[in-house]
Computed example of a mutant assay.
Amino acid sequence: MTEEGERRAATLQAASSVLVVVDLQDRLVPAIEDHEAVVARAGILVKAAEILAIPVVFTEHFPEKIGPTVAAVTTQGPGRQVFRKEHFNACDEPGFTTLMADLGRPQAIVCGTEAHVCVLQTALGLVGLGYQTAVVEDASGSRKAPDREAGFRRLAVSGVTPVTSEMVVFEWAARGGTDDFRALHALIK
């Protein structure tokens, strides 16, 4: 198997992951198709990350105009970081790649809005930096379904692994029968 194939085939691991929540902001989210489900699934991922001490990076695109991250997904945990950005690709923003490198985790799990713009460009940027990158399809959205689906198709052929929130939670859990698993399982029941 090639190095890229090994990187794409690797199981998501809590100790190797960082969750990147892209632009789930107050004034943008209501325009997103099926936004309640997108926010609910992103919230599950954030809570799972808290349980497993996985760092969470929230990007906010021009928060003074679009607002902060929606309260339903924010966390006050020690691994929480908010990163203001102007570029659609967070990796093009000064300081973002340093922030990610300082976390020292090779797997980036990405969700948010819009799937075909900021999520797409940030995920492609992370792949370009060598991160094993997965985009959580049920926790990512766009204003229009055709844009969302085109974004996911492009990601899939660009070295980004498509996943769902349940896939991520169960891979992070790795096994049943633990206190962490019971807490995680309660999130997705």
Rank of each mutant, 00 (worst) to 15 (best):
M1E: 10
E4G: 08
E4Q: 14
R8K: 13
A9D: 11
A9F: 07
A10F: 06
L12F: 01
L12P: 00
L12Q: 04
L12R: 03
Q13D: 06
A14P: 01
A15V: 08
S16Y: 05
V21W: 01
V21S: 02
V21T: 05
V22Q: 03
Q25G: 11
Q25T: 13
D26M: 06
D26Q: 13
R27W: 13
L28A: 09
P30R: 15
I32N: 03
I32Y: 07
H35Y: 12
E36K: 15
A37S: 15
A37L: 11
A37V: 13
V38K: 01
R41V: 00
G43Y: 00
L45R: 01
L45K: 00
A48S: 03
A49C: 08
E50N: 04
I54K: 01
I54D: 00
I54S: 02
V56F: 00
F58C: 00
T59N: 06
E60I: 04
E60V: 03
F62W: 14
P63L: 12
P63T: 15
P63H: 10
K65D: 09
I66L: 15
T69V: 02
A71K: 00
T75F: 00
Q76L: 03
P78W: 04
R80H: 05
Q81L: 05
Q81R: 10
R84N: 15
H87A: 14
A90T: 14
D92R: 15
E93R: 13
G95M: 15
F96M: 11
T97G: 10
T97S: 10
T98D: 13
T98S: 09
L99M: 11
M100R: 08
A101Q: 08
D102Q: 13
R105K: 07
P106A: 07
Q107D: 01
A108S: 09
I109N: 02
G112L: 05
T113P: 08
E114P: 04
V119W: 07
L120V: 12
L120T: 12
L120C: 10
Q121S: 14
Q121D: 11
T122M: 09
T122N: 12
A123T: 13
L124Q: 10
G125S: 15
G125P: 09
L126P: 05
L126Y: 03
G128L: 10
L129Q: 10
G130K: 04
T133G: 05
T133F: 06
A134H: 05
V136C: 03
V136M: 04
V136R: 00
A139C: 09
A139D: 04
A139H: 00
S140G: 12
G141C: 05
S142C: 09
S142A: 15
R143W: 08
R143M: 12
R143Y: 08
R143Q: 14
K144I: 04
A145K: 05
P146Q: 09
D147H: 15
D147Q: 12
D147K: 14
R148M: 12
A150C: 13
G151W: 06
A156L: 08
A156W: 11
V157P: 11
V157M: 14
T164H: 06
T164I: 10
T164D: 06
E166G: 01
V168Q: 03
V168L: 05
V169W: 03
F170N: 01
E171Q: 07
E171G: 05
W172H: 06
A173C: 04
A173W: 06
A173I: 06
R175M: 11
R175Q: 12
G176T: 10
D179A: 12
D180G: 02
R182V: 10
L187P: 01
